[in-house]
């Protein structure tokens, strides 16, 4: 079974874990306290939280199926942070409150912008390693 969590993967698990906790906490607070204030922004916060949780879990699980799901999660993340990043600048009225992805993840040191690409790099790099191993 392919191991996604050893070596550099361990660092990814750590960073993804931090974001899973941060995004989940944020969306729980937002939806728990004032769900009506910014429905779109809060739904996106929840989506981000789920995506980070799924990615973290898949990295920990390892194996081909988990890797596939993790690749999809990273792709969703990349699209999410780019689309929300642009919209949070151009369509400010849609976002009365912030999400993890607002302004390309500015509130989190722009890590949400970098993270999906690091994730994809790690997940796809495994292909080359496997090709070498089977050759």
């Amino acid at each position: 079974m392919r191991d996604l969590k050893s070596g550099p993967g361990r660092v990814l698990v750590a960073v993804y874990g931090v974001f899973a906790v941060a995004a989940t906490g944020r969306s729980l607070v937002q939806l728990g306290l004032e769900p009506g204030k910014a429905p779109l922004a809060y739904s996106l916060s929840l989506l981000a939280a789920i995506v980070y949780l799924v990615a973290t879990t898949c990295l920990l699980l390892g194996g081909d199926r988990a890797r596939l799901v993790a690749i999809v999660s990273c792709a969703v993340e990349a699209v999410g942070v780019l689309v929300v990043g642009v919209l949070s600048y151009t369509e400010t009225q849609l976002f009365p409150d912030k999400t993890v992805w607002s302004h390309f993840g500015q509130g989190y040191g722009f890590l949400p912008l970098v993270l999906p690409f690091l994730g994809l790099l790690w997940l796809l790099r495994g292909d080359h390693a496997r090709e070498r191993a089977t050759r």
Binding site: S6, G7, P8, G9, R10, V11, V13, A14, V15, V18
Partner: peptide, 18 residues
């Protein structure tokens, strides 16, 4: 805990992240 499981440069990097 992660750094002690992964006894390599990468495990130590986890501590930097923390």
């Amino acid at each position: 805990a992660l750094a002690l499981v992964e006894r390599s440069r990468w495990g130590t990097t986890v501590l930097l992240v923390a």
